[in-house]
Computed example of a mutant assay.
Amino acid sequence: MSFSIKGRTAIVTGAANGLGLAVARHFVRAGANVVLADMDEAALEREMTEMTADADHVRMFTGDLRQKLSIANLVSTTVDAFDTVDILVNAARQVAGTAPLDPEDTSVEDMLMQNLSTPLRLSQAIARRFIKQAEAGSEGSIGSIVNLSSIAGRRANPELLGFSVANAALDQMTRSMAVALAPHRIRMNGVQVGSVLSASLMGWLRDHDSARQSILDATPLGRIANAAEICDTVQYLASDAAGFVTGQIVTVDGGRTLLDPAAVAVH
């Protein structure tokens, strides 16, 4: 079975930077039509100027996907440009700290809106589009949705309470929605990532030099992932090669979640 997504149309959220941008670029190189969606218009425009050679296969969309109208406009933009949509990658992730004992702290609600409710609503809209454009009697999957989450959802970190809770909820949403969408031949899976060598992490490590060794010590494979390794996993789940895979959370963390943090600290 082929891993190819050539000729498919994909929407990638959070595509102005980080993993969202990495996935969008990866999909373009793989021959897909890609709509880059984000709130950062300036960053998207800069990226579009870098993709002039692929201009026929790339579009940008700027909007706040927490708003239902923006979701509808994103779907319309994609269909107007490429006629269909075949893949959705929910890669937009917001990280914010939490003061767990402060009743005025709204970070949990904010994280749940950005990292759970928004991908859920967008997935519902895209799923309806998948169903509408499916031909009667066609075989196999009619669309694939991939949600990016974090191993923070499996760890107890009070300072990242909102982010951790939202990621745990997103993984459960992926499983539950996969069952709901399966009768319509729509697949939904997740990629749960550990530390990735993004621009933001590299900048943070420059200011926290000892943190790099802590990450390496906590990772059995002894290194930090590069974005391409996450992108390859996303492409697999989006492709026909994963045609019988749904409701799965694929953890790409170098084995980090296999270790007891206490044991790592002792050794």
Rank of each mutant, 00 (worst) to 15 (best):
S144W: 00
A180K: 14
G247K: 08
H208P: 07
R59N: 03
T233Q: 01
A238H: 01
V234K: 00
S210D: 15
D40A: 13
H267T: 14
V264L: 02
N115L: 06
A55G: 07
L44I: 05
I230E: 00
A92G: 02
R187C: 03
V146S: 05
V85P: 00
G243C: 10
R175C: 09
E50Q: 15
E50W: 11
Q192R: 15
R29S: 14
I249W: 04
V191D: 00
L74C: 11
L170A: 02
M60W: 06
L21E: 13
I215K: 02
D207Y: 11
A134L: 07
D86P: 02
A15D: 04
F163W: 01
A125N: 07
G243F: 05
E50K: 14
G18R: 06
G243M: 08
V234H: 00
S4G: 08
S239H: 03
L197G: 11
R29E: 15
I186Q: 06
I87K: 04
A211W: 14
V75T: 06
T118W: 01
I215R: 03
N17W: 12
S214A: 15
A178I: 06
Q94M: 14
A96W: 05
V95N: 07
G194N: 10
T246P: 01
N17R: 15
M173N: 05
A99Q: 14
L161G: 04
A152W: 04
L161A: 12
F3A: 13
A169Q: 03
A72I: 13
R129G: 04
N115C: 08
S239C: 06
L160C: 10
Q94C: 11
I224F: 06
A263L: 10
I87V: 12
E45S: 15
R129W: 07
A241G: 14
G137P: 03
V12H: 00
M188D: 02
G255Q: 09
A262I: 12
G63Q: 07
I5T: 07
S70V: 11
R8I: 06
G243A: 14
A15L: 08
N226R: 15
N157T: 15
G190N: 09
E50V: 12
R185A: 13
N73S: 15
S2K: 14
R154F: 04
L88N: 02
A242D: 05
C231E: 04
G222Q: 08
F61N: 01
